[in-house]
């Protein structure tokens, strides 16, 4: 399984944490598509705590964290 953690406004309608079967995604971009998230909506994408890009590969046991841009003051 791959654990996907959403932060701030990306939690809307998706919850806080979910798991998906490892075979359902080969890249972080596949996970974004699965949850209907445009890459532009993601300011920080972490794979196991490391800054990553949508084209980076994911595997069983990985933890993906997705942070949106936050700009209010």
């Amino acid at each position: 399984m791959i654990e996907v953690r959403f932060f701030a406004t990306l939690r809307d309608g998706r919850g806080k944490i979910t798991e998906i079967p490892a075979e359902s995604a080969s890249t972080a971009g596949d996970i974004l598509r699965r949850f209907d998230i445009n890459p532009e909506e993601v300011a920080i994408l972490l794979i196991n705590g490391f800054h990553s890009k949508p084209e980076d590969s994911v595997k069983d046991g990985d933890v993906i964290s997705l942070f949106p841009p936050v700009g209010g003051g």
């Binding site: 532009e40 909506e41 300011a43």
Partner: peptide
């Protein structure tokens, strides 16, 4: 981010 697409308070 494009302010038109980013979450806006």
């Amino acid at each position: 981010p494009d302010p038109e697409k980013a979450p806006d308070a």
